[in-house]
């Protein structure tokens, strides 16, 4: 999520560049040269810059563009032995199968619910936490707390999932050990499909909510202290200061982040879900990427896997563009 805002910051500058005329070239010599010749000269002048860009550019072409060629497989009955050239074309049949497959709506439901819960429960937490941290007057206390809440962001999902197991599982989970010590029946929290969505949301919160405060704290830090001083003179309580000064100061950031978050509603923390899935929670935890992975890579249903991925990507792009449009509509700068 933070990454998104940063892109926003970065792309904003990039946007300006797009608008600049391409050639701020040195004036042409007396002789009128052909356009091609002029271009060639420009290319020669910049040869070292091309050299610097080249390795990265090759990476983007080879690992980002070339795989798009493979999207054609979504319209084929792909066989690995015949390749893209030899496989039979079946038009939209893979998509037709996907949409008529009852399971598809399960995938859609899980994706949307996990995201909605994330927006409702997770999204406000970094804002709240940032305000709480901002109200702390002891620098040392604030710094230490910040260090602690940022830390989980740098752990892998494997470690976070592992810690979750040590909290909730039946054999090594702390909660069950406590239940056991009271002579109570153990509960298998991790295979309870009713708890799965909530657990995923809480897990995301634990891992990233602290790190998410950075962007808000930065926005709050930009507030002119004299605003607070005059509020105090006017007899405003701390709560009123938060309500009338701090919150309006970060409103802009909140709106942008919220819109971007809505734009990425097709994306679910895929590693996270994959690590927490087990057969008993499959029906509530399977999302598009998991399906693409299990069908396309594990079960060898390559065409199905590609089709699911393509469907997800296309909806994802539409959502991002829609969010961008909405963001401009709301008077913010767009991301593109």
């Amino acid at each position: 999520m933070i990454l998104r805002l940063l892109q926003e910051g970065g792309v904003h500058t990039l946007n300006q560049d797009f608008n600049q005329p391409m050639a701020a070239a040195p004036p042409l010599p007396r002789v009128q040269k052909g356009r091609l010749q002029h271009l060639w000269k420009q290319v020669l002048i910049h040869r070292y810059f091309y050299l610097l860009v080249l390795p990265g550019l090759l990476y983007f072409i080879l690992f980002k563009l070339v795989p798009m060629w493979g999207l054609l497989i979504a319209f084929q009955n792909y066989s690995p032995f015949q390749g893209i050239w030899g496989s039979t074309w079946i038009g939209l049949k893979n998509f037709h199968d996907l949409f008529t497959y009852a399971h598809f709506y399960n995938l859609l439901r899980n994706t949307l619910i996990i995201n909605l819960l994330n927006i409702l429960l997770y999204f406000p937490v970094p804002i709240l936490l940032a305000i709480m941290l901002n109200e702390v007057r002891h620098e040392a206390f604030k710094r230490v707390t910040q260090s602690i809440v940022y830390l989980p962001h740098f752990l892998s999902w494997v470690v976070v999932a592992g810690l979750t197991y040590f909290l909730l599982s039946t054999d090594v989970g702390v909660l069950n050990k406590i239940l056991h010590s009271f002579g109570l029946q153990q509960v298998s929290f991790l295979s309870n499909s009713k708890l799965f969505w909530l657990m995923i949301t809480l897990q995301s919160m634990w891992k990233d909510a602290g790190w998410g405060t950075i962007i808000f704290l930065a926005a709050i830090a930009g507030v002119n202290p004299s605003l607070y001083e005059s509020a105090v003179v006017d007899g405003a309580s701390r709560f009123r200061q938060i309500w009338h000064i701090t919150l309006p100061a970060i409103r802009h950031v909140i709106v942008i982040l919220l819109i971007l978050r809505v734009g990425s509603i097709m994306d679910v923390g895929f590693e996270q879900i994959l690590l927490m899935l087990n057969p008993l929670v499959m029906n509530v935890g399977e999302v598009f990427d998991v399906y693409a992975y299990t069908q396309g890579i594990l079960n060898g249903q390559i065409s199905v896997g590609v089709a699911v991925g393509l469907f997800k990507s296309v909806i994802g792009v539409l959502m991002v563009l829609g969010a961008n449009w909405l963001s401009k509509k709301a008077g913010n700068e767009g991301i593109f």
Partner: peptide
Amino acid sequence: TMPGRNFILTLVVFTMVFNAGIVPNYL
């Protein structure tokens, strides 16, 4: 002033919005 720069930037931003998905990358 580098010719082609805008094209490369567009390509980079494009990969941020759209990617081929798990299976094509794997293939």
